[in-house]
């Protein structure tokens, strides 16, 4: 029994080591996630104003997006494998603008949802490009 366990854990370890080369840095995977959440927020926002989505569904969705992004922003420059200098400053700036749209999405007709949509799309593209290196 004990021997079987140690064989299994050894196998697990070697799988982990072997697949290291298939995996991404912390920054790349987090940037991918951030980009994907901003894309989701953009799509949700657009669908609401195109009449494809009810208000309740959108409210609930944005709560999920907020909890997925919670606390990620300030960590970006410190992440393992993050770019340096101007490039990371730009990412942080885009993040802040998009984050505002996620925190206070304009779901009613009166406000300027198009500029929020632009901010979300721009941030989403930037982060997804950054995650691919």
């Amino acid at each position: 029994m004990r021997r079987a366990l140690s064989v299994v854990s050894l196998l697990m370890l070697s799988v982990a080591l072997a697949s290291c080369q298939f995996s991404q840095s912390e920054f790349a995977s987090q940037a991918g996630k951030i980009g994907s959440e901003f894309a989701a927020a953009a799509t949700t926002l657009r669908y609401v104003h195109e009449g494809r989505l009810l208000r309740g569904y959108a409210d609930s969705s944005f709560q999920s997006y907020r909890s997925m992004l919670e606390g990620l922003g300030p960590q970006i420059p410190r992440m393992n494998g993050a770019p340096k200098g101007k490039r990371v400053e730009r990412l942080v700036r885009l993040y802040r603008r998009a984050e505002k749209a996620v925190t206070h999405p304009c779901l009613d007709p009166g406000c300027d949802w198009r500029s929020q949509l632009r901010a979300l799309n721009e941030a989403s593209h930037a982060f997804q490009r950054a995650s691919q290196g």
């Binding site: 996630k33 894309a39 989505l53 569904y57 999920s64």
Partner: peptide
């Protein structure tokens, strides 16, 4: 195609 990763259940329903 829209770059949405479906990391939350709400996204799947979009």
């Amino acid at each position: 195609p829209q770059g949405v990763g479906a990391n939350t259940l709400a996204e799947v329903g979009l």
